[in-house]
Design a protein around this nucleic acid. Structure first.
Lengths: 126, 126
DNA sequence: CGGCTAGATTCATAGTTGCCGAATACTGGA
DNA sequence: TCCAGTATTCGGCAACTATGAATCTAGCCG
């Protein structure tokens, strides 16, 4: 269920819904979060919760465990960090001189002169 | 342009589309990115590009400048960092102990020369 | 002025999303 | 074994999203 290469956009899409964001926030606070609790705190029906958790799972953001007849979710913090890495690449901290190394999960490019429009335009990654 | 409080989920939603992610990635590499370049590198029509840039703009992710008859876009790095902050709250680095200090909890030091539209975009957590 | 060009806007239309009620599957216990 | 509890899957509907064709607007240049 944790197939590695999940498109970044898929993760963002998963996070881009208020209910799913809310779910993720809740789950993030525990090591294991019971499905039944979500039911109590969200304003939607059970099938809808299931629908959203499935999307989160497919995006690789959460992991699903079944124990007895209960389901538990846990946050894939590594995936979260990877996403942060992607964002970091686009907007590193106050750019003092050079691009500072961060938990750099990724190849970077020349910061350099980056001046006018026209530079190397590459079509990409998806 | 960047209306006051933009919901995090709106930002994620904006980033959760391959075309928009691609746009953001390109823009991130320059201080100013010409609209016309997008047209060359994206496999969609002009109106569609316009549509997507509008969404990015409404999400507060990019800023739009018009100079002559050309449009230029630039990335709101401060907003990007805000978003990273939100993610960081959910998945701090290897949890050594407790919640460790993030780069900038909420208010970051201004980059000296205040631009126009500082508009401290506060990200609501819904 | 009048044509020209870079983009935005409007519009209609496929396709996708979010939602719920009902049906289904699985589990633990009596 | 059958029942009650827990959650997923199915079917269908309303709302939203993404898209290109046609149209409009603003700035450049002759």
């Amino acid at each position: 269920m944790a197939r590695e290469p999940v498109a970044v956009t898929e993760v963002f899409k998963a996070l881009g819904d208020p209910i799913r964001w809310s779910i993720v926030q809740q789950i993030a606070q525990e090591d294991e979060f019971a499905c039944s609790l979500l039911e109590d705190m969200l304003p939607v029906s059970k099938p809808t919760i299931s629908y959203h958790t499935k999307i989160l799972s497919q995006a690789g953001l959460i992991e699903v465990h079944k124990r007895g007849r209960n389901y538990f979710y846990s946050l894939r913090r590594d995936v979260m960090r990877e996403v942060m890495g992607e964002l970091w690449d686009l907007a590193p901290d106050e750019e003092k001189g050079a691009v500072r190394a961060r938990p750099a999960p990724r190849a970077e490019r020349a910061p350099a002169a980056a001046d006018e429009a026209d530079a190397n335009v590459r079509l990409l990654t998806w």
